[in-house]
Design a protein around this nucleic acid. Structure first.
Lengths: 323, 323
DNA sequence: CTGAAAGCGCTAACAT
DNA sequence: ATGTTAGCGCTTTCAG
């Protein structure tokens, strides 16, 4: 059995509370005693039990981070940024994957509730109602979804969509296909709204599609049939899958059809053609989400709304429309 | 404040221990009482506090899963399989990313120690000595690294390397480059050993390389200079980066140089050319790792060694050597 | 079948 | 500066 605070106390001839203090409030204990206790602790391999500590302090110093699909390369930069940022604040981030399943998502939150001080919900598939209900149990920060009255980080994908479509129209494309994402996706809704509000484009909406390469691959035939020459895909994965699907059918990108993705994942830069895409500020979002969450853990939830700008990165998957 | 067991006890007019039993040993409590307690609990939104429960039972019902780099697509299938498998056994898996940093890895393990019942160490960068020291604190299962006396899951990448090189030689390649991985990588060592032991190949070892597309991109010039016509890359990411680097330099794959990767990640199938690769049984490894870990949590560590077969998937990135 | 009491490892007033 | 005491939320003997 691992050493407890009691073992250390006994072995160093002080009371447990003194040992406790040497770890949680070192300045309150005599330097001499402290060194001795520390030495004994080191010797016994003692480490404070965070779970037990949490029971009295009410602070676990853990955060939960829930994502819909860990294998989507969109998330890792966000996760890494959040973990690094949290670590610097002496917090630890636990990541969990919901497999795009709202039910699993809800169970996960329940499980996490008492083991973390707050949870980061990234692109949740859960209904707003469910989220609002759950918020009684644990502080939340929501990323990429609008839930009123809750601290939220949004990446302005609507603006990104406008940028992308303007880029496409400037290249002479008139008929543009929007490949929407999964039903519950806020991002997808934003894109659709932004696109629909634009003048001078002949918009065709295809989907919902799975937010994966498979999703893009599967919709390729439909895209061709639609007669669109410009495409804005739900994300880079879909864009890459689509390009592959088009390629297999002898349709060239950007020669025949121009494709724009969303996210700016690493492999988009290594795809051939290199992907034109709407860059999402994921790392920044991860950091700000942690800050916001920590803040609402300390001071109660302030329903702040932070909107992060997106930008268009033009690479090789878009070009002039054939005349 | 969320409802505690005491609130439920009070509101349903029974002792806390009865409430406790209702949740952890339902068969020991009168059906009638049980329904009443359950109703009250539901009503109050009561959920047992797992951390507190852990304090008395010594079981958190959590597992930790540590990976070197969550953005490497090799890991997600393993993570997902482990999470799903664990969930079915009423365990939850917390994932953490070490950023390929042994120091961070060690801290993470320390943090996790008391909050989980066991830790899955995937492709650790930590030294064997450090791992052996840490094992006193928490049960481990190690994946893709040989640590003597510890439960271990290995994917037989040595065999995979042999398969790949045989494939290459059969296609007429004589001079073959092995792109090794990061210094601390067990996998990389296995591949090198297997390759070195093969007759009739003129082996050149290039590296260490970062286990990423960047790593592959960066080594492209060296590969060309080496005069090798066949390449076995540390993993698919490196292979994809390499192909891109070669392409930029006007070298064709598989026309001029054949490339084999390792892992069989999804995007390898969508790359152009589709990647020939050594398929790693990651999902199976994730499931077995959970089983092994749970077993060693229950019965103490049995130093089992499980070796999983790998296989070669031939696609389009390999072809006949130019004569 | 249910209640009483002790205790898991730790912290937080309150004394001294 | 250190010791005392109580208690966080829960489980687990042990009685009854």
């Amino acid at each position: 059995m691992a050493a407890t605070i009691r073992d250390v106390a006994q072995a160093s001839g002080v009371h447990v509370s003194t040992v406790s203090r040497t770890f949680s409030a070192p300045h309150l204990v005599n330097a001499e005693t402290r060194t001795r206790v520390l030495a004994v602790a080191e010797n016994l391999g003692y480490r404070p039990n965070r779970a037990a500590r949490a029971l009295t302090t009410g602070r676990t110093h853990n955060l939960g981070l829930i994502v819909a699909d860990i294998s989507n390369p969109f998330f890792p930069p966000l996760i890494k940024a959040a973990q690094a940022h949290a670590r610097a604040r002496d917090y630890h981030v636990f990541v969990a994957d919901t497999d795009e399943d709202p039910q699993v998502e809800e169970e996960l939150i329940q499980t996490l509730t008492k083991q973390v001080d707050g949870v980061l919900l990234c692109s949740p598939r859960l209904s707003n109602r469910a989220i609002e209900r759950l918020r009684a149990d644990v502080p939340f920060v929501v990323v990429n979804r609008r839930v009123k009255g809750m601290p939220t980080i949004l990446m302005d994908v609507g603006q990104g969509a406008r940028l992308a479509i303007e880029h496409l129209t400037r290249l002479g494309h008139r008929r543009i296909a929007l490949l929407s994402g999964p039903g519950g996706s806020w991002t997808s809704g934003e894109m659709r709204e932004a696109a629909a509000a634009m003048d001078g484009v002949d918009l065709v909406i295809l989907g919902p599609n799975a937010p994966t390469e498979q999703g893009g691959l599967a919709v390729a035939a439909e895209v061709i049939a639609s007669g669109a020459t410009g495409v804005l895909a739900y994300n880079d994965l879909v864009a890459i899958g689509l390009i592959e699907g088009l390629y297999e059918r002898g349709v060239r990108v950007p020669g025949d059809i121009s494709v724009v993705g969303v996210d700016d994942i690493v492999s988009g830069r290594l795809n051939r053609p290199k992907l034109t895409t709407v860059a999402m500020p994921t790392a920044a979002a991860g950091r700000m989400a942690v800050d916001l969450l920590l803040q609402s853990v300390d001071d109660g939830a302030t329903p702040t709304l932070i909107t992060l700008e997106t930008g268009l990165v033009v690479r090789e998957s878009t070009g002039e429309a054939r005349s």
